[in-house]
């Protein structure tokens, strides 16, 4: 019995997302086809998504397996938090420290990057962003926010 794991996971993922949305919208009034309530359209979509997920999952049986490939843990752990750090910190820290943090922390996602390269890169990036976005485009941001002002 062969099985295409990629398709099976894909189908299951769509089913789970469909169920999550259905659960999240369970209290929305459906209304009638004449006067649709806020829940009507999303519920129809959930139904279609779950159905498609079932078909995709079902058809994965008997297919040739396709390799899933590796998971870039290092990149996931360093790149995804970068924008979160920026969002959390930009108002308090200001543009310069926030960009520096994004650049410095995410640079290590590459295995070839050492601390010196990361530091130089982050400094150049920070200067560039401050120049373009603050002075050049005049975005309403502070260079240094209240958390780091003395």
């Amino acid at each position: 019995m062969t099985l295409n794991r990629k398709d099976l996971i894909c189908g299951l993922l769509f089913i789970v997302i469909g169920l999550l949305f259905a659960y999240g919208g369970k209290d929305l009034p459906l209304g009638t086809a004449f006067r649709m309530g806020p829940g009507y359209f999303p519920m129809v979509l959930c139904g279609i998504l779950i159905l498609l997920g079932l078909i995709i999952a079902f058809r994965s049986f008997g297919e040739v397996d396709s390799p899933l490939g590796g998971v870039p843990w290092r990149a996931l752990l360093l790149i995804l938090p970068a924008t979160v750090i920026f969002g959390y910190g930009v108002r308090g820290l200001g543009l310069i420290p926030a960009v520096f943090l994004v650049g410095f922390s995410s640079a290590f996602a590459s295995r070839q990057t050492g601390p010196i390269f990361a530091f130089v890169l982050a400094v150049i990036l920070t200067l560039f962003c401050a120049g373009v976005f603050y002075w050049g485009l005049g975005l309403p941001m502070q260079l240094f926010g209240p958390w780091v002002r003395f």
Partner: peptide, 19 residues
């Protein structure tokens, strides 16, 4: 090199979406 590019992409995307 790409390892110098992706931090810049992240920074630009962050500033862009923030704005």
């Amino acid at each position: 090199p790409y390892r110098a590019l992706f931090p810049a992409i992240l920074a630009f995307a962050s500033i862009g979406v923030w704005s």
